[in-house]
Design a protein around this nucleic acid. Structure first.
Lengths: 146, 146
DNA sequence: CCTTGACCTTCCCATGATGGGAAGCCTTAC
DNA sequence: GTAAGGCTTCCCATCATGGGAAGGTCAAGG
């Protein structure tokens, strides 16, 4: 199985497969006499594992850890759960940060007429003129200057 | 005002201020006889604008657009709202993607005993063995092989 | 046998936004 | 005058991915 077939079978681009090999995420592939990489179904299995881990948002480093745990028959499920739980926390953190942005931005967009006049609460907020959060003074209001 | 003071006053690192100048996000700063950059309060104002835009998750490219609109007294609020609304959509898309990951991962973590035995539904999912989503077989089930 | 096209190889570069650090000036305060 | 700290430019690293060039290889068909 050449790299192109492995790519098609795993859903990971040939480019990425080579990269994963380079950084040691996967083992160095065997080569044919003409230096082509060859892949077994087992290797494709590993690549699918990686793809799924990436789909769940694990970094390549976390994925490497998970791959090692997968290969280690004497692993504990606690070790796996620990990696996954840390990622849950991280996802929750990221989501919360994005939701904060979204709430603020939606508020500003709602307050903007969106007509042909230049007046705009969005720009006012960015410029720090409106002291941010005009109607329910929360957040920090520490941006007056000059 | 030297770059260090401008950095402190705007909350943007000196490193980033130089970078923003390099990519043309901000105007080239005036220099002293000894080649030090100097900043006016107006320049600091722009830097704060950028910082706020970044806090709301706008890319530097979007931020550049917003800066131009801010400077353009004949802008329409519709133009500003359009940029912001596109970003709202993007934020919603990202949040939804992360929430999908989170829901799946939480489900897996909940199903994992987290004890000293090797059995682990998280690894099973990553390996594609459980056909994913064990209890309500949807998604694609196209990963049996060997 | 030779050509063509589709594959493979390695190598370099780019992204986006940021930080680190080195080498060498400049300034300020003592 | 000297030491500390700020400034300058330049290069490198991150993280995961893609693009593309230059050149080797393989299979099919004339």
């Amino acid at each position: 199985m050449n790299i192109g077939d492995a790519a098609a079978a795993s859903g990971i681009s040939a480019k990425m497969i080579r990269y994963y090999e380079e950084i040691g995420l996967i083992a160095r592939a065997d080569r044919t006499a003409s230096n082509y990489r060859t892949y077994s179904m087992e290797a494709v299995h590993s690549l699918r594992f990686i793809r799924r881990a990436r789909e769940l948002g694990f970094s390549l480093e976390e994925t490497a850890t998970l791959l090692k745990l997968w290969a280690d028959k004497s692993r504990t499920s606690a070790a796996v759960k620990s990696v996954a739980s840390a990622h849950v926390v991280e996802l929750e953190r990221k989501i919360a940060a994005l939701q904060d942005m979204l709430a603020t931005l939606k508020h500003l967009v709602d307050g903007c007429d969106g007509n042909e006049r230049p007046d705009c609460p969005i720009l006012n907020d960015l410029a720090g003129e409106g002291q941010r959060a005009c109607c329910h003074g929360e957040h920090d209001a520490t941006q007056k200057e000059t």
